[in-house]
Design a protein around this nucleic acid. Structure first.
Length: 264
DNA sequence: ATGGTGGAAAGTCCA
């Protein structure tokens, strides 16, 4: 099973780029974030024509929005909470049958958290911390097997998940309150599938800001997008690719797709 | 220290 996760930053605007992703990578499952499309306007027909007639999506006007697209039938998970009671379309989950049994996939878009790393001064940062706390408590109480968590988690947890650990310790996405929380979430029962392939001492990024003249030359990236799996899936983990070249496509997203292969 | 760019949508808000 090939899974792609991508913060597409507008599904409707970047449908042609999604078609390229599909043509080059032929994923079985595509998890999208920041679809920015209300459910009634979801481009269901175009996605079916691209080979993905099965989906679960949660979208709203203007912001946020997540979707899981699949070549194969899926069953939407209905037991996921409304995090922080905001109804803001940041999580969908579904189960997909494979030859070796069902796999559950969670697709998350964690709040970015604004600019000021102080929960008293910045309600967006407070929301981000509370969101991760809630999700962590939920996963701690829902023991999972054969599960995958993917998405834009908006936190770069390791020193080499950012271009400068020291310079970013005060920058939302890499502050200790965030990285500590992300690690606690991971430790509810998951393994970092990307770092299984790329050692923690090596730089690894999935996002480069739009606000940069030459993203590639400055290379001030961060690893905000993640793939986690339950340990029972670890023997099935056969590959992982960060599609860095996608950042140079015409009208790119600021995030690039991440591919993971599971022999299930 | 500031501002840099991009998407949605028609104000600004969000990233």
């Amino acid at each position: 099973m090939r899974i792609v996760t991508w913060n597409i930053n507008s599904l409707r605007l970047r449908l042609p780029l999604l078609a390229e992703v599909i043509r080059h990578l032929a994923p079985d499952v595509i998890c999208l974030q920041e679809t920015k499309v209300p459910d009634p306007l979801f481009p269901e027909k175009a996605l079916a024509e691209l080979g993905y007639p099965y989906f679960v999506r949660k979208g709203m006007k203007g912001y946020n929005g997540v979707a899981i697209l699949s070549r194969y039938p899926l069953v939407a998970s209905e037991d996921t909470p409304d995090w922080c009671e905001k109804g803001d379309c940041r999580h969908v989950a579904a189960t997909i049958a494979t030859d070796s049994g069902p796999v559950e996939i969670h697709d998350f878009y964690v709040p970015a958290g604004g600019d000021i790393p102080d929960p008293e001064a910045n309600p967006k940062y407070a929301h981000k911390l509370a969101f991760v706390d809630e999700v962590t408590a939920w996963f701690a109480n829902h023991h999972k097997t054969r599960s995958v968590i993917v998405g834009d988690l908006n936190i770069a947890p390791l020193e080499h998940d950012v271009w400068s650990h020291k310079q970013l310790l005060d920058v939302v996405s890499h502050t200790p309150p965030e990285t500590t929380r992300l690690n606690a979430w991971l430790e509810t029962g998951f393994v970092d599938a990307m770092r299984h392939f790329v050692p923690p001492g090596e730089k690894l990024y999935t996002w480069w800001s739009y606000r940069n003249r030459d993203w590639s030359a400055s290379n001030r990236g961060r690893r905000l997008d993640h793939v986690w799996i339950t340990p029972d899936l670890k023997p099935s983990l056969t590959g992982m690719t960060v599609v860095r070249e996608a950042r140079d496509w015409a009208s790119p997203s600021d995030h690039v797709p991440v591919v993971v292969d599971l022999a299930v």
